[in-house]
Amino acid sequence: MTSPIAHNIDARALGKVAVLLGGYSAERPVSLMSGTGVLDALKSVGVDAHAFDPAEQPLQALKDQAFDRAFIALHGRGGEDGTLQGALEWLGVPYTGSGVTASGVAMDKTMTKRLWANEGLPTPQYLALTRAELTRERIRTIPDELGLPVVVKPPHEGSSIGITKAAGYSDMQAAVELALGFDDELLFEQCIEGPELTCAVLGEGDGAMALPVIEIRAEAGNYDFANKYETDTTQYLFGSLPATLEVEIRDLVLKAYRLLGCRGWGRADLMLRQSDMKPFLLEMNTSPGMTSHSLVPKAAKAIGIDYPQLCLWLLAQARLDRK
């Protein structure tokens, strides 16, 4: 696979750059790790880059301090959900990644699934229920509709925050209470048994390119927050799938990415059903992690793109939705 990025980018021509990190979402600790990595990488290739935490200073300071563009290394609400993108549009500061609409839709896992399902793209069966609907009686009926295990998610969070795989009826109430700590509407998803996969995309529209698929093997099959960010035991495998299946998954991810209107970069998470090797889309991340454990840098490295090159290319793609 040939690298899709240009290697002759003039770092100085990109101007004064704000690396947006931290923020106020539940994913703040991950964002601080991502942002620090991006900041160091951009500085290493000559970019005039500076850390900027929206939780510590108002966004208007981006304009007041004459920043020319922003690299968004924020995750979750207030950074990945379209609200920040809208503010940057208003301020006129070009930014990395997807625009307002694509960011807002992709951050809502339920809405994303509705769009994919409507277009015939495979995604696990699901139910979306509000806090008011989640009576004890209703919770007990969910496994009857989706089967067990049931994956319980707060649909507006990432990094596996608030997610539980409920193995039985007795686990459902605790799973719901945990997820309701992060969201007022919950997503209940049919559990697809099999390998967990992820596939990153760079670019936009017809020019977008899917990077190699990564199979994730975590301890006890549980790719939770700890196994994502706090341990080194999780395995990330390239080339573990048959070549034809690899192509099928990359094509599926590109369709999912384009359907949402994503640009710049993104990463789709999927499950591969063991019984028939059918892939199912779970979600699209429009501001993927950029920590030492993160998956987009791993996929880019697999085709010869090092971390600073990746960060520089993403920064060079920064733009506004408006003309």
Rank of each mutant, 00 (worst) to 15 (best):
D10Y: 08
D10C: 05
A11T: 01
A13M: 02
G15A: 13
G15L: 14
K16A: 15
V17L: 10
V17K: 06
V19L: 05
V19N: 04
L20V: 09
L21S: 11
G23V: 03
G23Y: 00
Y24P: 12
S25G: 13
A26F: 14
R28Y: 01
R28L: 03
P29G: 05
V30I: 11
S31Y: 02
S31L: 05
M33C: 12
V38A: 03
L39T: 09
L39K: 13
L39D: 08
A41G: 02
A41P: 01
L42R: 04
K43H: 13
K43M: 11
V45S: 02
G46N: 10
G46V: 09
V47P: 00
D48A: 15
D48R: 10
A49H: 05
F52D: 00
D53A: 03
D53I: 03
Q57I: 07
P58M: 01
L59P: 02
L62S: 10
Q65V: 05
Q65P: 08
Q65T: 06
A66C: 12
F67Q: 10
A70K: 10
F71V: 01
A73R: 09
A73C: 08
A73Q: 07
L74G: 05
H75I: 02
G76V: 06
G79T: 06
E80L: 00
D81E: 07
G82T: 02
T83H: 12
T83Q: 12
L84P: 07
Q85M: 07
G86L: 03
G86D: 04
A87T: 13
A87S: 14
A87G: 13
